[in-house]
């Protein structure tokens, strides 16, 4: 019977799934918003996968904050190890992974064999995470795409002094009330996030290249600003949001 390896990354914002075979070929990927009942959600995702690949045997590895709720998991691995493994597989290089997720961000230094050499995560605070951008986008009634494009289109930016995801919202509102142009504010918001991330990066002994993973990695304004702030070239895997799930699937091999 053909054996397939499923990686489920049950994150705070999205559930990501990758199915690979023993040759490490990616057969299936899925990204959907995290629902309140992760146990049921991941249960039905797995059921659909079993139907889709009927006749196969599965080994399920779960990661992410909801990993404990994936009842059918054969193995659980932390997202740190999974992002390292996934990024190493996607790029084939040692380097430093910057993962900006929905509710946490991490910097992971990955060695020659894809092993974790060091890591650091954001403190008990949503600043520097996807949630920071999400809150502002919601407040401004903008889509992520619009946020990204506004930030890229602006030459100037305002400085957002609050690093708190909640207080930054009120700062933005007061800036709008003062008549400051929206795109300058949006660029400033991106800068605040990136500065928070790079501060974390500089707290460890990292080495290039910088590899971006997580949902926020798709945002080109964030990519550009990280390059500006660090002077390092960055690599973004083809589908950065599934890096953790891919790493989880690989952990099952």
């Amino acid at each position: 019977m053909k054996r397939l390896f499923v990686g489920i990354d049950a994150g705070s914002t999205a559930v990501k799934v990758v199915v690979i075979d023993s040759e490490k070929r990616v057969l299936y990927t899925l990204i959907e918003d995290t629902k309140p009942f992760i146990e049921e959600q991941t249960g039905s995702i797995l059921k659909a996968i079993r139907e889709k690949f009927s006749g196969c045997e599965f080994f399920v590895t779960a990661t992410g904050y909801g990993a404990q709720l994936v009842k059918e998991a054969d193995k659980r691995v932390t997202e740190i190890s999974c992002h390292a493994r996934g990024a190493f597989f996607a790029t084939g290089k040692k380097g430093t992974v910057i993962d900006i997720g929905g509710q946490d961000s991490k910097v992971i230094v990955v060695g020659n064999d894809g092993q974790v050499l060091d890591f650091v995560m954001n403190d008990k605070c949503a600043a520097g995470t996807g949630r920071f951008l999400e809150n502002i986008a919601w407040r401004l009634k903008l889509s992520f795409k619009e946020m990204e494009e506004l930030a890229l289109s602006s030459r100037e930016e305002v400085s957002i002094s609050s690093t708190c995801a909640v207080f930054a919202e009120s700062e933005v509102i007061s800036m709008l009330a003062k008549g400051i142009e929206l795109k300058k504010i949006v660029k400033g918001i991106h800068r605040a996030l990136v500065k928070r991330i790079t501060a974390m990066l500089y707290s460890v002994s990292f080495f290039p290249p910088l590899i971006l993973s997580g949902g926020v990695a798709r945002n080109r304004a964030v990519q550009k600003m990280i390059e500006e702030e660090t002077g390092e070239k960055i690599i973004v895997p083809e589908n950065p949001q599934i890096t953790g799930a891919l790493g989880a699937a690989l952990s099952g091999l």
């Binding site: 904050y65 997202e79 740190i80 190890s81 946490d104 092993q115 974790v116 995560m121």
Partner: peptide, 21 residues
């Protein structure tokens, strides 16, 4: 109030995995 159990679990588990690798 200055302690977040989920985050502590993630950090410690990842650290344990790192020590084993």
């Amino acid at each position: 109030r200055a302690y977040a159990e989920e985050q502590v679990r993630t950090r410690l588990s990842a650290f344990a995995e790192m020590l084993e690798s």
